[in-house]
Simulated scan of single mutants.
Amino acid sequence: MTDSFASADERAAFIAGLPKAELHLHIEGSLEPELMFELAQRNGVAIPFASVEEVRAAYAFSNLQDFLDIYYQGMGVLRTEQDFHDLTVAYLARARADGVRHVEIFFDPQGHTMRGIAFETIVTGITRALDEAHAKHGMTSKLILSFLRHLSEAEAEATLDEALPFLDRIAGVGLDSSEVGHPPSKFERVFARARDLGLKLVAHAGEEGPPAYVHEALDLLKVDRIDHGNRSLEDPALVARLVSEGMTLTVCPLSNLKLCVVDDLADHPLKTMLDAGLAATVNSDDPSYFGGYVNANYRAVADALDLSKADLVTLARNSFTGSFLSEIDKAKHLEAIDAYA
Results as ranks from 00 to 15, higher is better:
66 D>F: 05
134 H>A: 12
37 F>R: 10
282 V>P: 02
331 A>M: 11
151 L>G: 03
228 H>Q: 10
96 R>P: 01
171 A>C: 07
274 L>D: 01
319 S>T: 03
309 K>E: 06
79 R>T: 11
110 Q>H: 12
83 D>G: 05
337 I>A: 04
303 D>T: 14
253 P>D: 10
68 L>M: 12
252 C>Q: 07
328 I>R: 14
171 A>L: 08
101 R>G: 02
267 D>M: 12
84 F>P: 04
143 L>G: 04
291 G>Y: 05
153 E>P: 01
242 L>G: 00
90 A>D: 15
78 L>C: 09
174 G>Q: 03
3 D>Q: 06
150 H>V: 12
82 Q>W: 12
153 E>I: 04
321 T>D: 04
307 L>E: 00
168 D>H: 13
227 D>E: 15
62 S>E: 15
51 S>G: 07
218 L>Y: 00
133 A>R: 05
72 Y>G: 07
115 R>Q: 15
28 E>N: 08
99 G>E: 04
237 A>V: 12
18 L>H: 01
85 H>Y: 15
244 S>T: 13
216 E>W: 05
28 E>W: 01
53 E>Y: 10
234 E>I: 09
31 L>S: 02
82 Q>K: 14
193 R>I: 10
153 E>G: 00
39 L>F: 15
111 G>P: 03
65 Q>C: 08
320 F>R: 01
98 D>R: 01
287 P>G: 07
320 F>G: 00
220 L>Y: 08
122 I>V: 14
265 L>N: 08
229 G>F: 03
49 F>A: 03
286 D>P: 00
72 Y>E: 13
283 N>T: 06
169 R>I: 09
318 N>D: 03
257 L>A: 05
82 Q>V: 10
108 D>C: 10
85 H>D: 12
148 L>V: 12
304 A>N: 06
1 M>P: 10
197 L>R: 11
190 V>R: 02
48 P>A: 09
51 S>P: 05
34 E>D: 15
294 V>H: 02
55 V>H: 06
201 L>Q: 07
179 E>K: 08
164 L>E: 14
31 L>I: 08
204 H>P: 04
60 A>K: 13
72 Y>W: 15
331 A>H: 12
292 G>A: 03
125 G>F: 01
289 Y>D: 04
30 S>I: 09
323 S>A: 13
260 C>P: 00
214 V>F: 04
134 H>C: 11
200 K>R: 15
317 R>S: 02
243 V>N: 04
57 A>F: 09
318 N>S: 05
140 T>F: 09
72 Y>C: 09
296 A>K: 12
133 A>M: 07
236 P>S: 09
171 A>Y: 01
14 F>V: 00
122 I>P: 04
26 H>V: 03
96 R>F: 11
58 A>T: 12
298 Y>G: 00
201 L>E: 09
153 E>T: 05
42 R>K: 15
262 V>P: 02
234 E>Q: 14
13 A>T: 12
227 D>C: 10
139 M>E: 12
58 A>E: 14
117 I>L: 12
290 F>L: 11
168 D>S: 14
88 T>M: 03
122 I>F: 02
61 F>I: 06
315 L>C: 01
50 A>Y: 09
185 S>V: 11
226 I>M: 05
237 A>K: 14
112 H>K: 03
153 E>K: 02
148 L>F: 10
141 S>L: 06
252 C>I: 08
177 S>W: 11
199 L>R: 00
